[in-house]
């Protein structure tokens, strides 16, 4: 049994799990795809049992046939020689992706398989399955039609804009991100809505929000209490204004969350909910590779241990 962890060398969240696995006597190989092909050597051959062979790092040799658990954490892109031309770089990167990525994809025991992460990161896709799983989903519109957006917002009344991804961009040397943003009636039909897909959602009154971390069906709920105006709109915008507690998750929500993850083929995920003053839980989104370390720190729930357990459990 060997656990393969795909992440960068500076991922302290992964460090914690690696230390726990090591304490349990479980062999671990930490590998950053950025080290392929310059520091990692792949040698694999197909046979009657599929792909076998080795991945050799400067410090370890991984026998692919021994891998029983793989954690896709925060791997970086392949790093190729800077001397390559653009054409050479693109050829090498694509071949590395298909070769290294293809072999790795063939292994089993993923938390989570990168294809599942890729699919689940599409918010319309996850909202579709959340509805199918019986979770309450706020009224939501995705459009690039300003006129339709204006009409929908007028019918809903209190509306927020939410990006469909987790966009970040660089302008004039500064990094920008977009959080959930309330919009006012004068913005509802803005022509700039026509320039790409935009998502609008009914704004809900909040008693508190919940980050529900799930690992192989185990639930680690954390109520997030916001104590500033910015944090009340989007808790990501003001971490210093947050406090945490452990709420009781209604059975219907728990069942829906498990069903959602089954539909999305995710063994790990961080789900976000709003709990309204009437006690109803409203599903906002699922983060298939969301951070959990700070939740563990604030609530004391053993999430790292659960991940270590999952990585040493043979996938069904």
């Amino acid at each position: 049994m060997t656990v393969l962890i795909l992440t960068n060398p500076f991922d302290i969240t992964a460090d914690d799990v690696i230390l726990r696995l090591t304490e349990r006597g479980v062999p671990v190989v930490r590998l950053d795809p950025a080290d392929f092909p310059q520091q990692v050597v792949l040698h694999s051959e197909i046979g009657g049992n599929g792909w076998t062979g080795t991945l050799t790092t400067p410090h370890r040799i991984l026998d692919l046939s021994t891998v029983t658990g793989i954690w896709y954490r925060r791997p970086r892109k392949f790093r190729l020689p800077a001397q390559m031309s653009q054409a050479e770089y693109e050829f090498a990167a694509t071949e590395a992706r298909r070769g290294f990525g293809g072999i790795i994809n063939s292994l089993t025991g993923w938390i989570n398989h990168p294809s599942a992460i890729g699919r689940a990161e599409y918010k319309p896709y996850q909202l579709h399955h959340a509805v199918q799983a019986g979770l309450n989903v706020p009224r939501t519109l995705i459009t690039n039609d300003p006129k339709q957006a204006k009409g929908w917002c007028a019918r809903v009344g209190d509306v927020v804009y939410k990006p469909l991804s987790a966009p970040s961009w660089l302008e004039n040397g500064d990094t920008y991100v977009v959080f959930t943003t309330p919009i006012t009636p004068d913005q509802w039909g803005d022509p700039a809505i026509g320039r790409t897909a935009h998502m609008f959602q009914q704004r809900l009154d909040k008693e508190f929000e919940v980050r529900l971390t799930m690992v192989d069906g185990k639930a680690f709920p954390a109520a997030i209490h916001a104590h500033s105006d910015a944090a009340r709109i989007d808790w990501r915008s003001d971490y210093d204004a947050l406090t945490y507690s452990i709420p009781t998750v209604p059975q219907r929500v728990l069942t829906g969350a498990r069903d959602l993850l089954r539909r999305l083929h995710l063994r790990y995920a961080a789900l976000d909910f709003i709990v309204s003053p009437d006690g109803r839980w409203h599903f906002l989104e699922v983060n298939p590779n969301g951070q959990y370390g700070w939740i563990e720190e604030h609530t004391g729930q053993p999430i790292s241990d659960a991940i270590a357990d999952a990585l040493t459990r043979k996938e069904n």
């Binding site: 500076f10 302290i12 987790a166 990501r236 971490y239 700070w294 563990e296």
Partner: peptide, 25 residues
């Protein structure tokens, strides 16, 4: 010593982190 979710903004080898490394997504 340090708990998870508190990632540095720039990696020592010069690569840039994604937003998920900066934010507690």
């Amino acid at each position: 010593i340090e708990r998870a979710g508190t990632m540095r903004v720039t990696y020592p080898d010069g690569q840039k982190p994604g937003q998920s490394d900066v934010e507690k997504d």
